[in-house]
Design a binder for these strands. Sequence first.
DNA 1: CTGTTAGCGCATTCAT
DNA 2: ATGAATGCGCTAACAG
Lengths: 340, 340
Amino acid sequence: MSNGGKKISILDIAQVANVSPSTVSRVLRGSAGVTPAKHAAVLQAVAALDYRPNIFAQSLASGQSMTIGVLTQNFGSAFYDGILRGILQGLDGTDYWPIFADGRWQPQVEAQALQLLLDRQVDGVILVGGQIPEERLREVAAHTPLLVVGRELSTLPDHCLYVKNFAAAYQLTRYLLDMGHREIATITASVGYESTVNDVLKRHQGYLQALDDAGIEPDPALVVEGNLLQQSGVLAVEMLLSRGRPFSAIFAANDNMASGARLALFRRGIRVPEDVSLVGFDDQATSAYMIPPLTTVRQPAIELGHAAAQAILAFINGQTPTLTPFDTELIIRESVARHR
Amino acid sequence: MSNGGKKISILDIAQVANVSPSTVSRVLRGSAGVTPAKHAAVLQAVAALDYRPNIFAQSLASGQSMTIGVLTQNFGSAFYDGILRGILQGLDGTDYWPIFADGRWQPQVEAQALQLLLDRQVDGVILVGGQIPEERLREVAAHTPLLVVGRELSTLPDHCLYVKNFAAAYQLTRYLLDMGHREIATITASVGYESTVNDVLKRHQGYLQALDDAGIEPDPALVVEGNLLQQSGVLAVEMLLSRGRPFSAIFAANDNMASGARLALFRRGIRVPEDVSLVGFDDQATSAYMIPPLTTVRQPAIELGHAAAQAILAFINGQTPTLTPFDTELIIRESVARHR
DNA sequence: CTGTTAGCGCATTCAT
DNA sequence: ATGAATGCGCTAACAG
């Protein structure tokens, strides 16, 4: 039942409640003690008139926007969407509101988007992935609460929240080894995006370390590079096959590429897991429904987002949250068979 | 190189450019003619001081927020994500900025989120799906540019943008019939969400109509209900199988459920498409990588979002855009085989 | 064309 | 505890 005409402001309710505008302001934001009587009167008037504060006036006067800028790289990626949802959820119930911007994996767009958020006077910024130069980030962090998710920055250690990619990949490779596999091919990625690649690089290192610890010398002929998209998974497998080097398992750096790999194997009539085992990384929603269901690593995306929200709020409140890397979970499904 | 101390305002550049604040404002927003000389001087000062307008002051003074509220139901759904991306892209380059809110499929949350957007003085609202009562929407549309995507409202025909679900489903079913299938099972959905269900209902009607036109009487035993999630696809197939009624094809109301159905069939040792053909709806990213790749219907999500952005801008500019339903595209892949 | 004058709606001193 | 007075930074009449 929005009242017909003009907007009601703080003055209207002041009048109705028989108090001064400042008193209204006070009870509305609980900034100072107010007589219970007046307090009630104000609340009543607010309800009666269905008063809605004008956030622009609020922000202009207070200097706070009560918003958190969230800069992502691509809506639509399983992991990132999870993080976003987590952030949303973490901010829920607080007085802060997220404002999103998308860098689209393009450095220029990203830098611009960050500036846009800053121009919008966000009270804090959460960066999800991305490739903004660390120096620029330090600059930003100097005067704005900042949190970087899914990226590990050496000069901003207490502003980063990420997942233990190395350990997860190590564990996953270890699992393959335990299942009797010795010739484990891998599809990595390096083209493109610094930050993501950072993750992927860590995964690759975990893979290498596991092999090494098992006394196996990594075979360069079993390493192929993709670009994280499905299509690159099929190309990678074709490449692998054409090299003629035998392998009994494939470790794809993400589920997307694993999915592409699966299709390529299917086309060649190579059975999974009877002929070759396959594992991925991400545990995206569809992976549990692959044929056969994919063994992979679950990254706690929502939890990460949630923690990010908490952390940025802490920063805003002048605290310094303790950020610890997140553990992953090995999800064993049916795409891996014992070898030999 | 952000200048050390206090923010620079319009007055600072006015001083530097040797003009009045209003002139600065004028050149900045091109609201009136200004002498080329002064014009240049202002621009120069702006650049020199790296001036950033304060949007809150702008909005407060102008009454415009230059933002578009976008209310979605769930980040993470293939179709919806596409729409969001389209909106983003459509708004790109304009002076408007999207502000997102998530209704999470919960009517209460959704109503609240809409109110929140309105409170933020958005200059326009785009609703993506959702189940806000039509009456409320009419109320909103009365004083705010409004656009509803993926929902067909009879009392707000020129505010709706959607896809031809009926025709698409008809065509898809027709394809199955042409391939010789007569006993076509279907997995629909009705639990839950009014709007989505509206889409799904249209699809079901298209299916029925196609059967009817082919002189086939629909068999209730071949209709199962899911909830659009993958898991419900597997349950649906199990249900279907347990009924003992033979069928040679399954039409799932979305790719998600098709994916679940695929897994259930796999578990039972039923081959696709040799034993039963399978089709879905949505053409989500992973569907092209299913085993075998899924025949489905592509909904032009990005295009829809793009059009939505265009339309809302038109509304804001006082125009009345002509909205026409979007066509879909039948994507034929390998999950369907000729019957008999 | 351009400078001057008022607000926009609220938060916050400052007095009381 | 509370009212009056100022100002946040900018836009939009209003004069000239």
